[in-house]
C-alpha cells in the first residue's frame, strides 16, 4: 500500500488533487494550527474588548510602578521567552531523534512555564492583597483610597480586564505545562510531529503574551506608583 501511495504521489501534478497532504503536514499539526487560529481570535476578542472599554472611559488607572511591577512582569516575559527557546531546542533534538535530549529540553521548558506561573500567581496574590479586585477595588483599603485620589474618574474595569485576560492566559500556560508533561512522559511513543505540535501550542502561548504584556502592563506604567 505504501509504495502504491508513493506512486500516486509522484504522478500527482499538484498537491491539491487528493491522495496527499496538501500542506505536507499531518492531521494533528494542521488541527493544531487551526486551533491556534481560533484561539488567537478568542484572545483578540478579549484584548479588543479591553481596548474598547479603555478608550470609552474617561480615565484609566495606570497603577504599575516601573520598579518593581514592570520589572517583575518583564522577568515573567523573559521566563516565557526562554522557555520558548528551550522548546525549540526540544523540537530540534527530537528532529535528530535524540529523545533523551528532547525530554530534557521539554523539562526545561516546563520549568520555565512553571516559574512563569509561580511568578504570576505571586503577582496576583500581591495585587489582591493590596486591594485590587475583578469588580474594582476592595472597599476601605489604603490602596483603594490612594487609587481613588489619584484617578478620581477611573473606570473600575481595570481589575476586570487585568484578571480576565491574564487569567485566561494563565489557564493556557497551565494547560501547556500539563500537555508538555504528558508528551515528555510518553516521549518514547511519540513521533517527532507530536513534539512539534506541543511546541506549536507552547509558542502560541508565548505569542499571546507578546501582546498581553505591552497592552496590559506597559501601557499602565506610572511614575508615581500606587502599587508597590
Amino acid at each position: 500500500m505504501t509504495t502504491h501511495a508513493h506512486t500516486a504521489e509522484r504522478l500527482t501534478a499538484d498537491d491539491w488533487s487528493g491522495g496527499t497532504f496538501p500542506y505536507h503536514i499531518g492531521h494533528k499539526k494542521l488541527g493544531m494550527w487551526l486551533f491556534i487560529v481560533s484561539d488567537a481570535l478568542t484572545f483578540s476578542a478579549l484584548l479588543i474588548g479591553y481596548s474598547y472599554v479603555r478608550v470609552s472611559s474617561d480615565q484609566w488607572a495606570t497603577p504599575f510602578a516601573f520598579s518593581p511591577s514592570i520589572l517583575f512582569s518583564t522577568s515573567m516575559t523573559l521566563c516565557l521567552l526562554a522557555s520558548s527557546f528551550t522548546m525549540v531546542m526540544a523540537v530540534a533534538a527530537s528532529a535528530r531523534r535524540d529523545r533523551r535530549k528532547a525530554r530534557r529540553w521539554i523539562g526545561a521548558t516546563m520549568l520555565g512555564g512553571l516559574t512563569f506561573l509561580a511568578l504570576h500567581i505571586y503577582e496576583w496574590l500581591h495585587l489582591i492583597e493590596e486591594g485590587l479586585r475583578p469588580f474594582g477595588l476592595a472597599q476601605g483599603s489604603a490602596f483603594a483610597k490612594e487609587w481613588t485620589e489619584r484617578w478620581p474618574q477611573a473606570s473600575p474595569l481595570f481589575g476586570a480586564t487585568f484578571f480576565a485576560i491574564t487569567g485566561l492566559h494563565m489557564f493556557h500556560v497551565l494547560t501547556g505545562v500539563i500537555y508538555l508533561g504528558y508528551i515528555a512522559l510518553r516521549i518514547r511513543r511519540k513521533t517527532h510531529e507530536d513534539v512539534e505540535i506541543s511546541g506549536l501550542y507552547w509558542h502560541f502561548v508565548d505569542l499571546v503574551w507578546m501582546f498581553v504584556f505591552p497592552l496590559i502592563y506597559l501601557l499602565s506604567v506610572d511614575f508615581h506608583p500606587a502599587v508597590h
Binding site: S84, L200, F204
Partner: peptide
C-alpha cells in the same frame, strides 16, 4: 509586538519552512 509575533511564528513555530500555501 507584531514583529515579535512574526518572528515567533516564522522561526519558533517553523512557519517559514512550511509550504507557503
Amino acid at each position: 509586538s507584531l514583529i515579535k509575533a512574526a518572528l515567533i511564528l516564522a522561526y519558533f513555530m517553523h512557519l517559514r519552512y512550511e509550504r507557503m500555501s
